[in-house]
Design a protein around this nucleic acid. Structure first.
Length: 269
DNA sequence: GTGATATGCGGAT
DNA sequence: TCCGCCTATCACT
């Protein structure tokens, strides 16, 4: 489930599994055969994540840059790795474990200058210690574009996907169609702080849970429910269902080609 | 088996 | 604003 928290988990996982180790790299599918050949036998020195971009640094000063897109997935396991099933673009392994990558939108090698350029085109990432939310505010505070679209723009804020967008706006009571420049600075600071909180929690638990304890179905005296995507949320993919807070039907629409979900009553600002 | 859908994004129109 | 990419999953036949 590739929003930013997933990518930061993958970076940490790769560091744990392979950091400091000589890794084997192969591309059973063949589409990354050349790149795999260059990595094969190198030491994984460090890992990095910015937004939805995963970066693995090898000892020849090259960075493996992976973006999962909408389809990309990783699977991990102990060696010996099974004969690859499906279309494994890249398999990394050491003496103990393997990591299989399927269906990424991007899997390429970058030199340091290219990596720097990647960081430069991405906005502050709520999960990075070096993130400066002021950079995002400079864009948002003067923009006529809706906050719902701005939050998904990776050059404004990096790492937020459709779920975190929907949930942070709900929790802050902000109408997704509000133009960025109509948002107060305090509201923006509230959204940013909530993204930091929610996404850090997502890294810890490995899924997106956004419902406050006082709003869980149990606390509200409703039957428990399970969301298909693995976490508990207020509005994401809950169109037509009652808002967990006020009972109003959750609304849905398409904004910049992406499904959007919100509560018309709770998100009135 | 088939088809719809997806947490993304770049490029064409 | 639409299209296409790339793959897995799930609801439905």
């Amino acid at each position: 489930m590739p929003e930013g928290h997933t990518i930061h988990r993958l970076a940490a996982l790769h560091r744990r599994m392979f950091g400091g180790d000589v890794v084997r790299a192969e591309s059973p599918q063949g589409r990354f055969a050349g790149g795999a050949l260059r990595i094969d036998g190198r030491v994984l020195q460090e890992t990095d994540a910015h937004g939805k971009h995963l970066l693995l640094g090898f000892d020849d000063d090259r960075w493996l840059h992976i973006h999962l897109g909408i389809y990309g997935t990783y699977t991990f396991g102990p060696v010996p790795a099974p004969v690859p099933t499906g279309v494994v673009r890249l398999r990394l392994s050491d003496a103990e474990e393997y990591a299989d990558l399927r269906g990424p939108a991007t899997c390429e090698l970058l030199d340091p200058a290219e990596k720097k350029a990647l960081h430069a085109r991405l906005g502050p990432d709520p999960l990075r210690a070096d993130a400066d939310p002021e950079l995002a505010w400079r864009r948002i505070g003067r923009s006529r574009t809706s906050i719902g679209v701005l939050l998904m723009d990776q050059s404004v804020v990096a790492g937020v996907g459709n779920i975190y967008r929907a949930e942070a706006l709900f929790r802050q009571g902000v109408d997704p169609s509000l133009p960025g420049r109509a948002l107060s600075r305090e509201r923006w600071e509230g959204i940013w702080a909530d993204l930091v909180l929610l996404m850090a929690d997502g890294v810890r638990v490995g899924r997106i849970d956004t419902v406050r304890p006082e709003h869980t179905p149990e606390a509200m005296g409703r039957p428990p429910r399970v969301d298909g995507h693995g976490g508990e949320v207020y509005v994401y993919r809950r169109s037509g269902m009652p808002c967990l807070v006020c009972g109003t039907e959750v609304a849905t629409g398409v904004l910049s080609g992406r499904n959007l979900f919100w509560c018309p009553r709770c998100q009135a600002v």
